[in-house]
């Protein structure tokens, strides 16, 4: 990929490097305080204590299942809908679009009670679906908005050309939209992962089975009514965050390689 910002001289390179470093400090500072906190008291023992929480494996398994299912649903539905909104003909398109976006505006705490009733009625209460479906529904307005804007940037000429070549809509979707939206898809996957991995209230309320609890419930082993072991809460947070950061790096890498190899361009 060609840099959007190019420093050819050494002095310019140096200035860029210093600028980036200065800008990063405020972001780094709280993270350092956090990691420091997670190592206070019993030091590495805090991490050991988190790993010794019996159900850690189960928690991770549940979170992985919930996140992967949510990502799949969100990705597929978002791409289809964003393509529809951006490049296909729909009467009263904007009304549908805003109806979807309106769902983004309710605070989670207000959603909880009605969602509880809905999941019970759907018969999915106390299953992964009870969390996956609402999570996906809450994520999709956001991802459609982002993806639609991105697909708007794909030249119409490409689709017209494909149509002249006799390709069907799905073929165009499959061979133009899917590969060309790889950068935004990576972002969508990462953001959905964060949304579902960090979901706290929904699994807490909608899943009762202890074998299906998620990693976000980890800190509560160290927080109670009259005590609050901050060091282990922070250690749990670090452990919970690592899979997300790794996923981000992998996806980012994948998407950058895809671009530089000229897969589409």
């Amino acid at each position: 990929m060609r840099p959007v910002f190019e420093a050819r001289r050494l002095s310019a390179k140096l200035i860029l490097q210093i600028l980036a470093t200065l800008m990063i400090i405020p972001y780094l500072f709280p993270l350092i305080v956090m990691v420091q906190g997670s190592l206070a008291g019993e030091g590495v023992g805090n991490y050991r204590a988190v790993f010794e929480v019996g159900a850690l494996g189960t928690f991770f398994k549940s979170s992985v299942i919930i996140s992967v299912s949510t990502i799949l649903i969100v990705y597929v539905l978002t791409m289809l809908a964003a393509f529809g909104f951006s490049k296909l003909q729909i009467r009263r398109k904007e009304i549908y679009f805003w109806m979807i976006l309106a769902a983004l505006t309710l605070p989670e705490v207000v959603l909880l009670t009605p969602l509880f009733a809905t999941t019970l009625a759907l018969g999915v209460y106390d299953t992964y679906w009870a969390v996956v479906l609402p999570l996906a529904a809450l994520q999709i307005p956001f991802t459609i908005l982002i993806a639609r804007r991105f697909i708007d940037g794909v030249p119409d000429a490409l689709f017209d050309a494909a149509r002249i070549d006799g390709a069907g809509t799905f073929t165009a979707f499959r061979y133009i939209v899917v590969p060309m939206t790889r950068p935004i898809a990576a972002a969508i996957v990462v953001l959905t992962l964060i949304g579902s991995w960090n979901a706290y209230l929904l699994p807490l309320v909608l899943i009762q089975d202890p074998a299906q609890q998620t990693v976000t419930l980890l800190p509560q082993f160290f927080v109670s009514q009259f005590s609050n072991d901050q060091t282990k809460v922070l250690a749990s947070a670090v452990i919970t965050a690592i899979p997300e950061i790794v996923a981000y790096l992998c996806l980012q890498g994948l998407f950058e390689r895809g671009l530089s190899a000229g897969a589409i361009k």
Binding site: D165, G166, G168
Partner: peptide, 14 residues
């Protein structure tokens, strides 16, 4: 590849 016929003109999504 884009030359394939219109198999998916109407999707089963409906």
């Amino acid at each position: 590849m884009l030359g394939s016929s219109r198999i998916f003109k109407r999707s089963p999504l409906g």
